[in-house]
């Protein structure tokens, strides 16, 4: 049937759940802004067709100079984020089940999935993937940060670092594309990070186990 009927009750009860505190939100957006600037400045030097992006940073030499410092800010900011969130991102059996039902996930048929805690397996993979890649990017980035670290390792190591840095950067940007899209697709999510609160319905639909804990007044962040 082409026409769907939706009956709306006159008054719907609304609940709100606190998801992120102010410091977590600030921490997240500093990380996000830094990552975006890093991606833009990095891509500018990645391919000639994107060199025009150096104009955003005041030219090629400035882009080259700013990029590593942004990396320092990112790893510092992400380190705090990591300490905040890592314990919520430990893998459990529900995550394995979620991963097996990835087909239902992308179709948005969440009623078929197990009840989930604060994060689903996709979010956890983004979390651990980003953490790992940022460490790799920082380590290889230091090696090729010629201004301060030239001559500390061989040119061969420099070449390897440059290659690994590019590959890790592409992987990280891919992960962030997934992360950003998930936020856009799953309506009501962005609010959690901009205002700190999600609706009870959002929590019921996507993170029911977490909602049950919150409703019982158990620990939360």
């Amino acid at each position: 049937m082409a026409v769907e009927i939706e009956r709306r009750p006159i008054m719907v009860e609304r609940t709100e759940v606190r998801r992120y505190g102010a410091s977590a939100r600030v921490n997240h957006w500093i990380t996000a802004a830094t990552f975006t600037l890093l991606a833009l400045s990095g891509l500018a030097l990645f391919h000639p067709s994107l060199f025009f992006l150096t104009d955003l940073f005041g030219g090629g030499a400035n882009t080259r100079a700013f990029h590593p410092w942004l990396g320092v800010v990112l790893i510092a900011s992400f380190a705090i984020l990591f300490v905040r969130f890592w314990s919520h991102n430990l893998w459990n059996r529900d995550d394995t089940q979620w991963t097996k039902q990835i087909g239902d996930v992308v179709k948005g048929e969440e009623e078929k999935l197990p009840e989930l805690g604060k994060y689903n397996a996709g979010q956890k993979m983004v979390f651990w993937g980003t953490a790992l890649l940022i460490v790799v990017l920082f380590a290889t980035g230091l090696v090729i940060w010629d201004e301060y670290f030239h001559g500390l390792v061989s040119i061969g190591t420099n070449r390897l670092a440059a290659l690994v840095h590019s590959l890790a950067a592409i992987a990280a940007i891919l992960l962030i594309i997934v992360h950003v899209y998930a936020g856009i697709w799953v309506k009501g999510s962005i609010r959690g990070m901009t205002e700190g609160r999600v609706t009870g319905g959002w929590a019921w639909r996507h993170h029911r186990k977490w909602l049950r804990q919150e409703a019982k007044g158990e620990t939360h962040d």
């Binding site: 609940t15 948005g108 609706t199 009870g200 319905g201 019921w204 639909r205 909602l211």
Partner: peptide, 14 residues
Amino acid sequence: NRVSETDEENAADL
């Protein structure tokens, strides 16, 4: 991927 009114009601009940 939208939250339905039923989801909201369920959350309120909970």
